[in-house]
């Protein structure tokens, strides 16, 4: 009797195991499918841009679509060609974008890091108020500021200058940088700073020798975000720039729209050129983005 019961129990057990295993297969399949759908939504527009930059204009506009695309570098050739051949001052736009993005990022990170450190480490009056205020400022849509910014910048003669755009981007990026670096500095136990001070450091030395290296992944992420925001910003840049002296790449994309037509191929080619530096930079910095440097220094 006992033997029979044992056997029955084993059979039930096996069935139970099988059903659990099957369910985990189904769940895994569903997970992969969902992942595919989400990644498609994210990647297809980018892919569309890259592919179209290598296709003749007729193919891009073809209805029904042509599924076996041909390959051409015409758009790129035209891009760097003369003004009459559909060319745009890519190099000027690129230079402007680099200057504005890099300078504004460096300034925003320096200010934001100091702010984030202060919020993480010091107690002062109205701390929460300041912090919420900064976040609220970030919540205002940039375009809403374009008119007041335009008026202010034109009064001080900073329309169509690098410095004007840099000012605006620094203001846009500082709150977010503060918020991000504050979180990272908060994760670093204050004992590290104290240990450094006891080891003979001044506050300044303790920050640069100990806290900054430990938080550099956070600072790197803040920098990447600030850079990408400046690099990709269009709405304000289109209002505040006028000529090749200050127009950035996103604004340059407008050069491909005429009154009745849009040169999709050229626009896509410029867009690809715009994506590449951002992609390279993100790739270079991404290993610093992986947090976890703080683990081990103190008992978790």
């Amino acid at each position: 009797m006992r033997h029979a019961l044992n056997l029955a129990w084993q059979v039930i057990n096996v069935d139970h195991n099988n059903s659990h295993r099957n369910r985990s297969y189904v769940l895994k399949g569903a997970y992969l499918f969902a992942l595919f759908v989400v990644m498609s939504i994210i990647c297809i527009p980018g892919l569309w841009i890259v592919l179209n930059s290598f296709r003749p204009a007729v193919e891009i506009m073809a209805k029904p679509p042509i599924w076996t695309p041909s390959f051409t570098l015409d758009h790129y050739r035209a891009l760097f060609g003369g003004a009459g051949e559909g060319g745009v001052p890519v190099l000027s736009y690129f230079r402007n974008s680099i200057i504005v993005s890099v300078v504004s990022t460096v300034i925003a990170v320096l200010i934001g890091m100091s702010g984030g450190y202060a919020f993480a480490r010091y107690r002062f009056k109205g701390k929460t108020g300041y912090f919420v205020g900064l976040m609220l400022f970030r919540a205002v849509p940039g375009v809403a500021l374009s008119l007041p910014l335009f008026i202010v910048l034109s009064r001080v003669g900073m329309i169509d200058t690098h410095i004007g755009l840099i000012f605006v981007y620094v203001a846009m990026n500082v709150p977010f940088t503060i918020w991000l670096t504050d979180g990272f500095f908060r994760q670093i136990p204050k004992e590290l700073h104290e240990a450094a001070e006891i080891d003979g450091c001044t506050r300044w030395q303790a920050f640069w020798q100990v806290e900054f290296p430990v938080a550099r992944s956070g600072v790197a992420s803040a920098a990447i975000f600030a850079f990408l925001t400046s690099w990709n910003e269009f709405a304000l840049a289109s209002q505040l720039t006028r000529s090749v002296d200050s127009k950035t790449m996103p604004v340059g994309l407008l050069d491909f729209t005429a009154e009745f037509t849009i040169n999709w191929g050229g626009m896509c080619a410029l867009a690809v050129l715009m994506i590449i530096p951002a992609l390279v930079l993100t790739f270079l910095v991404q290993k610093h983005l992986i947090a976890g440097l703080t683990f081990g220094g103190v008992k978790g």
Partner: peptide, 20 residues
């Protein structure tokens, strides 16, 4: 005096070793 001028050293509860 700041800590660095007191000629002391301290061992912390969570060690506070420099992780980098």
């Amino acid at each position: 005096l700041p800590p660095r001028e007191r000629n002391i050293s301290m061992v912390f509860q969570n060690y506070a070793l420099y992780p980098h």
